[in-house]
């Protein structure tokens, strides 16, 4: 793999080895001639965590590689869980763009195969097979596909809407790469979490603190005075911690809030804390669930047994006797009236 590849895919072990081989010392970043690298890292972090824009700028490989390293240190120093998650997600989206491009346009088949082997086979433990080089079609086992696709909520990712044959799913390059976004994000997240830095250069610290001050924290949804069933409380708490909720949990939360009588705008506001929040998409989806878009069918809240099956049930003694989360309040009220 070339040095450009290390810069595009900086989480690869080879990229780490390359940095080690340069014998660089973090303290050197106090020197003014390295200021432009810190500046580049700052812009990258600001673009991704403050503006929500994927940074696709790519200059010289060594500059990019060190800028990535500095940006990780900045995120580590900011030390806010939601920021770490958001940065990891946007960096994964950056990698996604490079990977898609390389898999389509890399004409050297040895380099291309090596890229597939390093990222998919070794790093992600996903066996993808090149099926049709002309059309850039890959195939993977159905079970490998499903273990990833079930995290997505769009209809297009459902197995039935895929090309399926003899135990394999056939995907184009973009789909193949999109499928592993969450894993790439987790790789970057773990890299930040596992970083052990004894002393951060003042110059980097300064930039990190300046970004930290610009962070606007979303208002957590208050649940203390409202009594929601534990499955809903759990989903709200996850969102308040900026966790990326799975589709099934988002579906539960939205349908529950609709049944609870919350307005579409109020529900959209709840989802603002999701790391991949996009108002336009969220609005469409909530309106769809409310029966105002698409099929015009209003979706009902999933039953307790369905939630248990999807590991979304957090049963407490207060749930006794209910079969659907919407009965939670009513049963409580009924018991109080009795």
């Amino acid at each position: 793999m070339g040095k450009d590849d290390f810069a595009k895919y900086p989480f690869l072990n080879e990229a780490g080895n390359f940095i080690k081989e340069t014998y660089f010392d973090l303290n050197e970043f106090e020197r003014p001639e390295f200021k432009h690298i810190i500046e580049k890292a700052r812009k990258r972090v600001e673009s991704e965590v403050l503006k929500g824009l994927v940074c696709t700028e790519f200059e010289k490989y060594d500059l990019e590689l060190f800028a990535f390293l500095i940006s990780l240190i900045i995120i580590k120093h900011i030390n806010i869980e939601s920021i770490t998650k958001k940065y990891s997600l946007f960096e994964a989206m950056r990698v996604e763009k490079f990977l898609t491009h390389d898999l389509i346009y890399q004409t050297n088949s040895i380099k291309r195969d090596l890229l597939i082997s390093k990222i998919f086979h070794e790093l992600l433990d996903l066996q993808i097979i090149q099926f049709d080089r002309q059309r850039n079609i890959f195939k993977m086992k159905i079970s490998d596909y499903l273990s990833r696709s079930t995290l997505f909520h769009e209809l297009e990712w459902k197995l039935i809407n895929r090309s399926v044959d003899k135990g394999f799913v056939y995907l184009d390059v973009e789909e193949t790469v999109r499928l592993v976004r969450n894993e790439l994000s987790l790789l970057i997240y773990n890299k930040i979490k596992n970083m052990k830095i004894t002393k951060i250069p003042d110059q980097i610290k300064l930039e990190a603190d300046s970004i930290k001050h610009k962070v606007i924290f979303p208002t957590p949804v208050q649940t203390k005075n409202l009594k929601f069933p534990p499955c809903i409380e759990h989903a709200l708490n996850q969102l308040n911690k900026n966790e990326n909720l799975p589709h099934s949990a988002r579906f539960l939360l939205a349908t529950y809030m609709l049944s609870y009588g919350k307005s579409i705008d109020e529900i959209i506001n709840i989802f603002k804390n999701a790391p991949d929040y996009n108002e336009q998409i969220t609005r469409y989806q909530v309106e769809h669930l409310a029966g105002k878009k698409g099929s015009l069918i209003q979706y009902s809240v999933p039953s307790c047994s369905k939630l248990a099956n999807e590991n979304l049930c957090f049963y407490t003694h207060e749930c006794k006797g209910i079969t659907n989360p919407i009965q939670f309040g009513r049963k409580r009220l009924q018991r109080r009236n009795d």
């Binding site: 086992k141 159905i142 079970s143 499903l146 273990s147 079930t150 459902k158 039935i160």
Partner: peptide, 27 residues
């Protein structure tokens, strides 16, 4: 063995596939 470790969500996808449920003409 390929399907042995498939969780409930994955199995739901197999079920929908077999039932012919949720097919989108976009595909």
């Amino acid at each position: 063995k390929d399907y042995f470790n498939l969780d409930s969500k994955g199995r739901t996808e197999l079920v929908e596939y077999l039932l012919g449920k949720n097919f989108s003409i976009t595909s």
